[in-house]
Amino acid sequence: MRYILVVIGLLWPMLINAQAWEDQQLFKGENPVQTLRVLSSTDTGFFSPIIQSFLAANPDWNVEYLVTGTADISAILQQSPQSYDVVISSAMDLQVKLVNDGFALKLPSISHPDWAQWRQSLFAFTSEPATIVVNRSAFRGKSIPANRQELIRALREAPEVFDGKLGTYDVRSSGVGYLFATQDARASETFWRLMEVMGGLKLRLYCCSGDMIDHVASGELLVAYNVLGSYAAARQLQDDRFEIILPSDFPTTMMRTGFVSKETKHPVAAERFVRHLVDGRYFATGLNTSSLPQLGLYPEGRNPTVIPLEPALMTYLDKLKRRTFIQEWSNAVIQ
């Protein structure tokens, strides 16, 4: 028994280091002295312009950018909160829960609209709608559906065309997929009908938006539901074989948020990084060819379709609620 414990003790640091990152990249500053560790769910490609402009302004830093799935971020941070300085994720609910549970540092000096921050700790810096991505060839000669109702009708009219060629997030493994699904379910019963229809046509489940877009572009999928609009739009710049639909019935818009870990070793630099995210000046530079959409600043303030940053986001994270929701979702999708 003691032997096993010793082995575990020896291997533990390696296990942490051996964390299976989706991507891991070190951005070097000009005269780096220290390294800021950023834990993120955003693909490196989208984020590198932001990091580059940060490093241009702060040449004495390196930024180590660590990418993992939204659902894993909570667990990784809770396991070793002192190892990460900034945490960025598109799963607003998980981020709110981490802040609520006291993992975030308060940054009182950052001024940000009330609806785009929570507890002066969690700051939103993009607003990205959930979209439906369709392959053009599937709707040749037909009108492209503008909302979920029309999509349901289209699927019902030609089930043989779409059979096995539909995709969406696997809400069991993707944090942002779960967020989109729960918010859709809150908004309308249409979501459940769509899931049932899609489930009947051998719906394929994905972990990430990137894969779904790839498959729609290649024709392997004809329709992907709840794809991150930002990724799709970036992709469309090089590849126009697919169409991006912003559902007209009820759009769901997510805000990408970031906070500074409470146990960060570099609070000043981490705050500077978040300030850099929030002030959005990098959007104005020429670096944003494939960057993230800026936080929509509506004249009346908040974008009305944006999911509000509030503690109620934790509702569907509840163990019992999640079990119930996934049960229902599975019943609808997996037939």
Partner: peptide, 26 residues
Amino acid sequence: AVVVDFPYAALSMLSTTSDDRVFYAI
């Protein structure tokens, strides 16, 4: 089995201007 499918409003009603932290236990 006990199922507690509590409404979104249960926590939503606790939103405050100062973004107070919220905890619960069942």
